[in-house]
Design a protein around this nucleic acid. Structure first.
Length: 583
DNA sequence: TCACAATGTCATTCA
DNA sequence: AATGAATGACATTGT
């Protein structure tokens, strides 16, 4: 699927690309000529198409029907294209007569696809579409050649009437100025809107277009590799011999190697499905201005964890916070720490916090059930106590009388271990003989907490400690949540960066595809130019020298044949304009 | 012993 | 005003 689908989504201009590609097929240039790697797969199919087209050989022959078929169905995508070529093909073609059958050749002038007399194609429409696309490029590519070619002023209504004065024969519009050549190898001075502003005095020098007697369009294009045709070579004087020196592609600057490399890398990243972060890192080798550097150790795993965290309301460490107790405390009776159903309440209370990302990967504050903990030797080395996070079952087991089967040594060890598990506040509470768990102190709602305090006769020191424990305990959970939030924010930002990099890669790819299409369009314009120019004849029936004359396109849709020198002047003028505008 | 990460604590702000 | 959440800064702890 790839690029083709994107192209079709783009615009009617892109449809035109395929329409013109059809012409390429008929012209003997397979689409793969422009396709590079993307289209090589379709070579065979294209070949078949092309072969079929060449068998037909004469455009006018199986013309209309085969043409309609080709036009309506894209051989590559199966897409259908509207055969929407307005009928007013007339004007320019009338000025380009043919030796054999003048009426038919009017249509055949521009393209084999235009042959059939019943062909609905509108030559002018094609020119118009071509020009509008190329004007887009002209905004980017500022080469003299392209500027000459596209010097329709910005905002020039390319979409407006480009018809070559339907009621006016082209030989009224195509003006042949006195030949006074300047070297103009790169001049592609077709279609300058300024031509229409030429002094009327020049009209005296206009030469009438005379029907050609010589050209064979088939021989001109049948086997030409259009890739080499871009930008008009000097036409060699005869319409039959249109092959000229290849000229530099002004698009080259847009498709420089770095960009293509970057794009291909991103293609790798996205289409081959390898780690987008790796892709982004690769890309950063090109994109040093991004200032972003993602750690490859993140994502996708870290990503998934963050995503899960944002929605889950599960077992955050703080939710499992409960008073830790050791068997040694249970002996203290009232001071004893009991794990009770309150831990459940705590979990609910924690749930109200509304922020329980699964963050254990990053914050190891969530202790497992001590029964499991005993099975995890490495956890036994955890000396410091984060008792708020201890699971209730840990407390249960701690409160239970030690099994009689346990030896005293191991009992002491366990007590020692659990003692170490206590937080400082728990030690303080124990020292101050606080008669309820830190868990309750911290997590009870204010009312219940006050109730609880009122149940006991507590000294001022005890009350103060209890308040501190509550404050610190709450703050501890808040800090944990805060850190979790921070981590989540970071992860989300990383994901956003990846998304944006994906988008960037996609846009770059699309850009390349459009540029490719644009290049094809230019090649086709060049072909059309040569075709038209090669068919022009002066009053003596001789072809015009491409070194002395050039076609220019006027804003009103007319096509003028003017001397090269004039075209050069206008080209220079057009070159200056955009630069001035930039200042 | 040092660096570092994880966690706890304090002070403060804000709702 | 009381309460608690949020958070920056610093302290403590463990590796």
């Amino acid at each position: 699927m790839g690029w083709e689908s994107r192209l079709t989504a783009a615009s009617a201009d892109i449809d035109l690309i395929d329409i013109l590609w059809r012409q390429d097929i008929d012209l003997g240039a397979g689409r793969e000529v422009f396709d590079y790697s993307h289209r090589q797969k379709e070579q065979d199919v294209d070949k078949e198409l092309r072969d079929g087209g060449e068998q037909a050989d004469t455009w006018a022959g199986e013309g209309a029907e085969a043409l309609a078929r080709d036009l309506l169905v894209d051989g590559e995508t199966g897409e259908s294209f509207p055969a929407q070529f307005p009928a007013n093909v007339a004007s320019i073609t009338e000025a380009v007569p043919s030796e054999s059958e003048p009426p038919a050749l009017q249509n055949s002038l521009l393209s084999p696809l235009l042959t059939g007399t019943e062909s609905p194609f509108d030559l002018e429409q094609q020119w118009q579409d071509l020009m509008s696309i190329m004007e887009m490029q002209a905004m980017e590519v500022n080469t003299s050649a392209s500027e000459i070619l596209y010097n329709a002023p910005p905002g020039d209504p390319l979409s407006t009437n480009y018809s070559l004065a339907p009621n006016t024969p082209i030989n009224q519009n195509v003006s042949l100025h006195q030949a006074s050549l300047g070297g103009c190898s790169q001049d592609f001075s077709l279609f300058s809107p300024e031509v229409e502003n030429l002094p009327v005095a020049n009209s005296s020098t206009l030469l009438p277009l005379v029907p050609s007697n010589s050209t064979s369009l088939n021989s001109t294009f049948s086997s030409t590799n259009l890739a080499g045709l871009f930008f008009p070579p000097q036409l060699n004087g005869t319409a039959n011999d249109t092959a000229g020196p290849e000229l530099p592609d002004p698009l080259g600057g847009l498709l420089d190697e770095a960009m293509l490399d970057e794009i291909s890398l991103m293609d790798l990243a996205i289409e081959e499905g390898f780690n987008p972060v790796q892709a982004s890192q690769l890309e950063e080798e090109f994109d040093s201005d991004s200032g972003l550097s993602l750690d490859s150790s993140h994502s996708p795993s870290s990503l998934s964890s963050s995503e899960g965290s944002s929605s889950s309301s599960s077992s955050s460490s703080s939710s499992s916070a409960s008073s830790s107790a050791s068997s040694s405390f249970s002996e203290e009776g009232a001071v004893g720490y009991s794990s009770d159903s309150e831990t459940l309440d705590l979990e609910e209370a924690e749930g109200a916090v509304g922020y329980q990302p699964e963050y254990s990967k990053f914050c190891r504050m969530s202790y497992q059930d001590p029964s499991q903990l005993s099975c995890l030797p490495y956890l036994e080395h955890v000396g410091h106590n984060h008792t708020y996070n201890m699971a209730p079952s840990a407390l249960d087991s701690a409160d239970l009388p030690p099994p009689s089967t346990l030896k005293k040594g191991s009992k002491e060890k366990q007590a020692d271990f659990l003692d170490k598990q206590m937080s400082r506040d728990e030690h303080r509470a124990r020292a101050m003989k606080i008669p309820f768990t830190n868990d309750k102190i911290i997590n009870l709602p204010v009312e219940e907490f006050n109730e609880l305090l009122s149940k006991y006769q507590l000294s001022e020191a005890q009350l103060s400690l209890i308040r501190d424990i509550r404050r610190r305990g709450k703050n501890k959970m808040a800090a944990q949540n805060c850190r979790k939030r921070k981590l989540d924010t970071i992860l989300n930002l990383e994901r956003d960066v990846e998304d944006l990099q994906r988008d960037k890669a996609r846009l770059l790819r699309e850009k390349v595809e459009f540029l490719r299409s644009l290049r094809q369009m230019k090649q086709k314009v060049q072909s059309l130019y040569q075709e038209v120019f090669g068919r022009l004849r002066d009053e003596n029936g001789r072809p015009y020298s491409p070194s002395q004359y050039a076609l220019q396109y006027a804003g009103d849709g007319s096509v003028l044949l003017i001397p090269r020198t004039m075209a050069d002047q206008q080209a220079r003028r057009q070159e200056r304009k955009p630069k001035d505008r930039r200042k």
